[in-house]
């Protein structure tokens, strides 16, 4: 038994000759906000994909709360309590916001496979109420009848986070949640994530390029480069770390 909520150890993944992850290790402590940073191609998204079962690593192990994640189907991993938010919001575009919100509530309540084909949706008061509660909490209630695809990017992101949170996950993974957002939306998202963390018993791991977001949110940071983890430490120590400056911050300054 270990103190860590999630332990991914020695993950390797290659596509043909291309090594996208090389001996990646990630440890998440329960209840922390952990940021994963590193230049493009450092294997961050690959790591996340391995954690939710979208990819199967060539070698290595992933333990979540003492149970192995590898070999499980994505929906089983979700049921263990891992939720993921994508860089481009993955929502149900052609459904209403309310329906978007109801799906995770059904999935949480009924398990993997909603068979009850003859139970009218409108009679499921508990699910409708739970969905409504989340919409109100996330300030989306006035948009409940809107077509999800026609919302702004910020609202789509908010909806996606709401969908994940409605299932009370123990670990929330976020892949560049503020990419392509205006500064105001970015700050709103930061506040939202802080608030989520304060109100719930949840661990958050976030991939982010925007150092403003990273340093406002993260309690611990893991730096990846060329598919291997460079260092894992607190934000203050990371800022001053020479290897990190060289491998990552230097590049990010060039990019900026």
């Amino acid at each position: 038994m270990t103190d860590n909520l999630l332990e991914a150890i020695g993950l390797q993944k290659s596509f043909g000759a291309l090594k996208v992850a090389q001996d990646v290790t990630l440890r998440l402590r329960p209840g922390e906000r952990h940021a994963l940073i590193g230049p493009n191609g450092a294997g961050k998204s690959t790591l996340l994909n391995c954690l939710v079962g979208k990819l199967i690593p060539d070698t290595g192990s992933v333990m979540f709360d003492g149970q192995s994640v590898l070999g499980r189907k994505p929906y089983e991993i979700n049921q263990m309590g891992i939720s993921r938010v994508f860089q481009t919001p993955e929502i149900f575009g052609d459904l209403s916001v309310q329906e978007n919100m109801m799906i995770p509530c059904f999935a949480k309540r009924d398990g993997a496979f909603q068979m009850n084909a003859l139970t009218a949706m409108s009679s499921q008061r508990d699910v409708i109420e739970k969905a409504e509660e989340m919409l109100v909490e996330m300030k989306l209630a006035d948009k409940r009848h809107m077509h999800a695809a026609s919302m702004s990017r910020g609202d789509k992101r908010r909806l996606e986070i709401a969908m994940c949170l409605s299932q009370d996950p123990r670990l929330l993974l976020l892949d560049e949640p503020t990419a392509g957002m205006a500064r105001a939306d970015t700050n709103n998202t930061i506040d939202l994530l802080k608030q989520i963390k304060d109100e719930r018993d949840i661990t958050i791991a976030i991939i982010e390029h925007d150092m403003h977001v990273v340093f406002s949110l993260a309690e611990r940071i893991t730096v990846l480069a060329q598919g291997t983890p460079l260092v894992e430490d607190t934000p203050d120590n990371i800022k001053g770390h020479p290897k990190v400056r060289e491998a990552y911050l230097g590049e990010s300054q060039d990019a900026a």
Binding site: Y75, P104, K108
Partner: peptide, 8 residues
């Protein structure tokens, strides 16, 4: 999204 919400 469906499978990552726990749906088979």
């Amino acid at each position: 999204r469906m499978s990552l919400l726990g749906s088979s």
